[in-house]
Design a protein around this nucleic acid. Structure first.
Lengths: 157, 157
DNA sequence: AACAGATTGTTGACACCTAAACAATCCACG
DNA sequence: CGTGGATTGTTTAGGTGTCAACAATCTGTT
């Protein structure tokens, strides 16, 4: 009784994927705490880095893959610290253009070098070709996860 | 001005890791919605599956890698649906032994086949050896993420 | 010009996780 | 015994995400 349930390497890989992402996310939370930033706050700053004209909050939410409503609070927090500013959007009175302030740029310049250094160190054990293959595999997993379209040929016709 | 910032394959892999995990998590949320279960609720049931004596909430929190305080609500929800029961723990009046009810077992038996089928389908494009390598790489990434101790032997002696 | 429908940012309700504090209970050591 | 220090589950507050609904605004069509 209690069928043993065979799991297999693919299931194993999926579990490891979730565990690894969780660990990485927590590590990054600890890393950014030094500057009293959450990972999401950092991501906002990082996305704005090479956007001299800024982005509106909907554009931000799309590149960060999160809901619009999230950006309200996120930008509020960063703005109250003077790292970011809401400018009026020329020609559209509904939206703002969110831009980095000089101080935001300064903070980002301080964070980025140790940030990339830390990432390189954490993945140092992966050769570059292997890192490339890892990225490729993960990209495929993501696309498949998003598309349950496959009418799964297994579901007995 | 604005140093170009070289990212590299390892950084790319890290980003894909986070994105893929997010996609998988969301897909699983959509998947379990059919039975009005959250992924976390499912995980509780799944962990209890092969535990005839049940687990207490601290043990559950350790295997699920989440805080104790979370289990209170999670078990409350499952118990109110009759999927799980809190039994008195023999010899320890502080804790409960959380066990699956017959109905919990029935629900799990209904969920597991399509669950594993779905996972296999989502990762079907990965050959088994490749899935194994993916799991290995992810395991290493997780361990490195948790241990920033390594003074990384590469950092120019 | 004017109206219908889309889009923007905000709000409020909810879910889920963390962390600190608490009472009840266990355990080890004198 | 009995007493001090751990452990268990709960509560509370806080962070971060989702989603639905809303007013303000834009856009396209007539």
């Amino acid at each position: 009784m209690e069928a043993p349930i065979v799991t297999g390497p693919r299931y194993e890989a999926l579990l490891e994927l979730l565990r690894a992402a969780d660990a990485v996310w927590n590590a990054s939370r600890a890393f950014f705490a030094r500057w009293e930033l959450s990972p999401s706050q950092f991501n906002v700053l990082n996305v704005l880095r090479d956007q001299p004209l800024g982005l509106n909050q909907t554009e931000l939410s799309q590149t960060l893959v999160m809901h619009r409503s999230n950006l309200t609070g996120l930008v509020d927090q960063l703005e109250s610290r003077g790292l970011v500013r809401r400018r009026e959007a020329p020609g559209d009175r509904r939206s703002w253009r969110v831009v980095l302030t000089a101080e935001g740029h300064r903070l980002l310049r301080a964070i980025l070098p140790p940030y990339f250094e830390r990432i390189e160190a954490a993945l140092a054990h992966l050769s570059l070709p292997r890192a490339r293959r890892l990225a490729t595999d993960l990209r495929r997993v993501r696309k498949q996860a998003l598309n349950p379209n496959r009418p799964d040929p297994l579901s007995r016709a």
